[in-house]
Design a protein around this nucleic acid. Structure first.
Lengths: 339, 339
DNA sequence: ATATAGAACGAAAACGGTTTCGTGTTAATA
DNA sequence: TATTAACACGAAACCGTTTTCGTTCTATAT
């Protein structure tokens, strides 16, 4: 086991000072050709690499960015991470991922752990519990300490920081419009409680499209699930009591699950009933029939978030100007609707 | 913006030495009651938290663990991360995730970035390119430096370290046996090239089961895809030329894609043909019909990996004893096979 | 009154770098 | 020959902790 070699080791071995070694390795003009070559050769031979921690301490910059998300076993979030990784890595940053698992407390703990010097900034999406409680003190503290934060997807207006979202309302609006164009009249919406910022916006888009088309908004056709898990009983009951010819769901899982229920009842998709979901993940592509969805462009969202964060981190902090980037959702047409 | 307060700040403000503050905050016996109370009160008031980086430098321990995986948009890997997070967080560790994206070079770069002090140990699964090249020098270097490594799922025998895998051979064996028991005679295998350790093991399990049951092994019934992406043409061609009554696939995606193809041909699942896949993910649960799969227990795998790694990190390094944990796969029966 | 022990605290080294500011040597210039 | 500038290098501070080893002072024992 050959332990890591340090500047001190090189200095001792070559009988020069630590400063000389440091400068030589940075190719400083101050050091003579000969000395530089000698030191550089020695360093290469012993595979010297500066210690990141020491550099972080000196520079007060870790080159780490903290990502706090509610869950990772969700296609959307994994694509966002991928985008973040892509941009961050290219810029020499590492990504520390923490999961809140939709819990407020975990979110707070994770942020506190990271905020004590481990990272240069946060990219995060709020846990459902946090959005429910509307308690954002942990975010306030962090921003007040001057740590940059970028919020994506599940955001809040309570915090002044950069934000990246897709236009959820527009997405739902586009989807609903599409269904209306195809002659659907009784369009259902399966969503979660309004405390989730995205669900709320999507519900608004749905309503807007119906209003515009002078279709009645039948509240009974809006199913609000209190949890993000598939509440089989509620969904089953919904389809047993409501007669609908199209369904918009706020995620993939609700969609494929609903499709199965109506297929069991002998309905044909999209002949008798159409479906549109949110999130262009594996399920959408491989479901049977494949799903028409509102794509959220998670990877792009991750890249933009990372870019905004790193810009802030590396800027000389002159002014505090925050922006909110709103990405346009895209409708990906597949077989759960007509073309 | 109130910047973070340091020991030095407290010392200056309270007119004591830095050492006294440090000791007082750790409730050292050396410091008088009065002084301790005064310092602790002050620290709490200004919300003092020690700087992680400084502590890392001092202790030569970062409380970070590096996770290097080939991809994150894969259900299996996300469940593993979840397991790692769960255990690591409970032990006060943070998880730095790096993606190799199946690339050897990225894997090497990521490891080098992290190996210079950023982490206390690695948990990783090899990229396909690495397994193909069989070049493990980056791993050797890291282990030689005394950095603990735990390999999971995609492992190699070339490296002496702890390992966690499921018994892939057994998984494939169990699955194949199940199909045989149900009267299937012409069982196909859709896999990837053998350089992937897991694919190789699964192929062996498949062969073993057939041999045991004295069924012929028809090499034409084994489809080896050169990439992990869905090679639509090859798969389509395979089903057009081969007559089979059951299919074992090494992942979910191959399975659902194949199911669709045969469904298009008018076959009924599982009446005419059965399917079993690997990985108990969303696709399996929500496919139509739902998938019978060999569950890999990713979350458990992650937990165990984290446990093994942290044990090593925190042990006093007395001896170098490495173990390989082999988890038992489980057959999850759903609707793509008979019961 | 003197030696001694313990209490309470501070100085300084250490972790591994970077960087500023000397300083000694040499060579060029007046 | 004296002055000066350039060159090549080293000392030391600094980042924020922890920790060892004094040191000072007081109180007790002799």
């Amino acid at each position: 086991m050959k332990a890591k070699i340090t500047l001190k080791d090189i200095a001792r071995e070559l009988e020069v000072s630590i400063s000389t070694v440091s400068k030589a390795l940075k190719n400083s003009e101050e050091i003579s050709r000969d000395t530089k070559e000698k030191i550089q050769a020695f360093a290469k031979l012993y595979n010297y690499k500066p210690n990141n921690i020491a550099i972080s301490l000196k520079n007060k910059r870790t080159k780490n960015i903290g990502v706090v998300i509610p869950a990772i076993v969700h296609h959307f979030f994994t694509t966002v991470i991928r985008g973040i990784e892509k941009y961050a890595n290219a810029k020499g940053y590492n990504v520390i991922v923490c999961l809140s698992e939709e819990s407020f407390d975990k979110e707070v703990i994770n942020m506190e752990m990271l905020a004590n010097g481990s990272i240069d900034g946060f990219i995060m999406s709020l846990s459902s519990e946090t959005q429910q409680k509307e308690d954002y003190n942990h975010l306030k503290e962090v921003t007040e300490q001057g740590i940059p934060v970028v919020l994506f997807d599940r955001i809040t207006n309570e915090i002044d920081c950069d934000k990246v979202v897709i236009d959820d309302q527009l997405g739902a609006y586009m989807a609903t419009k599409k269904l209306i164009e195809q002659g659907r009249k009784k369009i259902a919406l399966i969503t979660t409680d309004d405390y989730l910022s995205v669900s709320k916006a999507r519900t608004e888009g749905y309503r807007k499209a119906l209003l515009e088309s002078e279709l009645e908004i039948n509240e009974a056709r809006i199913l609000k699930l209190s949890t993000m898990e598939v509440d089989e009983k509620s969904i089953r009951n919904f389809f047993n009591t409501q007669e609908v010819d199209a369904v918009l769901c706020v995620n993939e899982i609700f969609t494929v699950f609903s499709m199965r229920l109506v297929q069991e009842k002998g309905l044909s998709i999209p002949k008798d009933i159409s479906f549109i979901g949110f999130t262009d993940g594996l399920l959408s592509k491989y479901a049977n029939p494949s799903l028409t969805v509102v794509a959220q462009h998670g990877e792009k969202m991750g890249e933009i978030s990372a870019q905004m964060l790193i810009d802030k981190v590396e800027s000389d902090d002159g002014e505090e100007r925050f922006q909110t980037k709103i990405l346009e959702p895209t409708l990906v047409i597949r077989d759960s609707t007509f073309n």
